[in-house]
Design a protein around this nucleic acid. Sequence first.
DNA 1: AACTACCTCAACCGCGATAGC
DNA 2: AGCTATCGCGGTTGAGGTAGT
Length: 243
Amino acid sequence: MEQVSMEMKKGPWSPDEDSKLIHSISLFGQGRWNSLAHVVGLKRSGKSCRLRWLNYLQPNLRRGKITPQEQLLILLLHFRFGNRWSKIAENLPGRSDNDVKNYWRTKVQKHAKELHCEINSQQFRHFLLYQWMPSLLAQQIPTSSSSELIVTENNYSPNNINTCPNVNVISSSMDSFVTEDDSNIWNNLSSFEDGINISHDFSTPSDMTLYNYSSHDEDDQYYCHNYWASAEMLSLDEMDLWL
DNA sequence: AACTACCTCAACCGCGATAGC
DNA sequence: AGCTATCGCGGTTGAGGTAGT
């Protein structure tokens, strides 16, 4: 059982507590968090220790801002997994579920609020797909102009999103995207981090975007970028097939 | 310089799932 | 089968930092 809460320290961790926890994990490994804390004299709950380790102390965690590539992945994976932050974080090396959750709450939810959209509404999903995601792609390849052009021509903005043509039409395709078999998203990826030898026959925007993220080759990224941009020119029927 | 509003993110909480006895 | 401990997840909070006025 957890130790009596009045004995437990709460709040920010001190460097000394951090080093005790790291030392304890180096000796005994992860798991049995209450015992780990007790062994090295940490007055912390097992829960608190686990959280501190997973979100802050464990090696290979990435600090700093979420990159445009990571943002793209979060948006795409959220379409598929919903608020399953740990599931999304599994696909973002070095990021914790807390990082993903914080990004979603501070950036995405805020944006939905500014647009006067429900976070899960068709309008907001459409905005993500046709404006936000292409703009994130454009940030990755600043020398290319096509996505910037697309966004400009669409002329989406917080003020006119509700009047954009077709804004209410896409939801059924999104629903099928969300319920698609999880494994499909990786169909064209041999590995996440260094997936280089991959077919260019993307079947969905998610495949393309994930490939773009995984590729370190500028030509490949440019290809992906234009592929995405060209999707904007497809009819909605064709888009349904993609999604 | 001082104040305020907003943002970021570390940490906590509650709850359901699972394991072990 | 039932109870208890532990784990893991998603939701939420709030302290500290930063930008704007």
